[in-house]
């Protein structure tokens, strides 16, 4: 792994840098016709939602995670409220995936606490859609995309899925999900033969099968080409808005998602900073987080470039298989 300064391209929403910070109110009936993304919400009469008025779905309080005896991060605080689109950002190896797994109770905390949907992590996982970081399906996997989506609906049930009313309802839901993610054209094909972007859409459909209130996506744009990154990012943004699913997305490249984000959680070894992208992705904030000079530059086309954020030291290894 390189120890050289790492540059991250971050596009800036140049027309309206504060737009992403404008909250939505799910309970407000006037919010039902939330305009499509890209329109300015100011002046539509939607009252700004204060940070504590929405229901908190996930809260991470002074948490420390250790994997294999090594502390990944410590003293991390983060919250996700209903309907929010939150990105978990940070350099490679800082433990972004671990934060998602801690929220699900898949990684125990060394100290601190996580509450998920009002209970301890792990109890409410049925109401959470999770798309883990992955290699794609092997080409030899001869199971249809439709069946993979169906597994997200009732794959954890014991006993045989007998044909009947329930089965017909399940397939109706599966077709609905496939339509929602725009995968109707290829969902009947073996998933191993689909492209990365097609597989990712089906996995998002799978995660949405039980109408979760919270969607946790681990690097869903990883290993997609640029047009597919933009398309899948737009899909996730649309799902968060239209289906009213709070979404937490882990990303190492915030490029394609920045215009959809409500808040970011920037993760460092000794804590995390959260807030709107405009508040957090600044030289001062990131320098404070990492304790080393970090500069956020703005390019002429409105992109942000983060210079000097530290890579994880090489001796810490890389749990994701050595990707630098």
């Amino acid at each position: 792994m390189s120890t050289l300064p790492h540059d991250t391209d971050i596009p800036y929403h140049s027309e309206d840098p504060h737009r992403a910070a404008i909250p939505r109110d799910d309970a407000d009936p006037s919010a039902t016709g939330i305009p499509d993304h890209g329109e300015d919400l100011r002046g539509t009469g939607i009252p700004p939602r204060s940070a504590d008025s929405a229901e908190v779905l996930v809260s991470v309080v002074d948490a420390t995670a250790a994997v294999g005896g090594r502390t990944v991060w410590s003293h991390v605080d983060a919250t996700v409220s209903a309907g929010e689109f939150v990105a978990v950002l940070g350099p490679n190896g800082v433990g972004k995936s671990t934060l998602l797994k801690a929220m699900l109770g898949l990684v125990p905390l060394a100290s601190g606490a996580v509450r998920l949907l009002g209970g301890p992590p792990g109890r409410a996982n049925r109401a959470v859609g999770y798309v883990p970081q992955r290699r794609s399906f092997d080409a030899s996997v001869r199971v249809r995309g439709l069946d993979v989506v169906r597994l997200g609906l009732d794959g954890d049930r014991w006993g045989l899925p007998l044909p009947g009313k329930r089965s017909r309802a399940a397939w109706r839901r599966v077709r609905e999900l496939v339509e929602l993610v725009g995968a109707a054209g290829y969902a009947h094909r073996p998933i191993g033969q689909l492209s990365g972007g097609e597989q990712q859409r089906l996995l998002i459909a799978q995660a949405l099968a039980r109408r979760p209130r919270l969607l946790l996506l681990d690097e869903p744009l990883d290993s997609l080409d640029l047009p597919n990154q933009a398309a899948v990012a737009a899909l996730i943004g649309r799902i968060c808005r239209v289906e009213r699913v709070a979404t937490v997305i882990v990303a190492h490249d915030v490029n394609p998602i920045l215009s959809y984000l409500d808040r970011v959680v920037y993760l460092g070894r000794g804590g995390a900073v959260s807030g709107t992208p405009a508040q957090v992705i600044t030289s001062d904030t990131l320098t404070g987080l990492y304790g080393t000079p970090v500069e956020v530059l703005s390019t002429s086309d409105g992109r942000l470039v983060v210079v000097g954020q530290p890579e994880a030291p090489a001796h810490h290894g890389d749990r994701h298989g050595g990707a630098a």
């Binding site: 699900l104 898949l106 996982n125 049925r126 959470v128 999770y130 798309v131 883990p132 992955r134 996997v141 199971v143 069946d147 993979v148 597994l151 997200g152 009732d154 794959g155 954890d156 049930r157 014991w158 006993g159 045989l160 899925p161 996995l203 799978q206 995660a207």
Partner: peptide
């Protein structure tokens, strides 16, 4: 009895684990 969760675990182990 175990066929359906076994299919889930065989195709998609990580997600199956998250589903309990």
């Amino acid at each position: 009895l175990v066929g359906r969760p076994l299919l889930f675990a065989s195709v998609d182990g990580d997600v199956a684990r998250a589903h309990g």
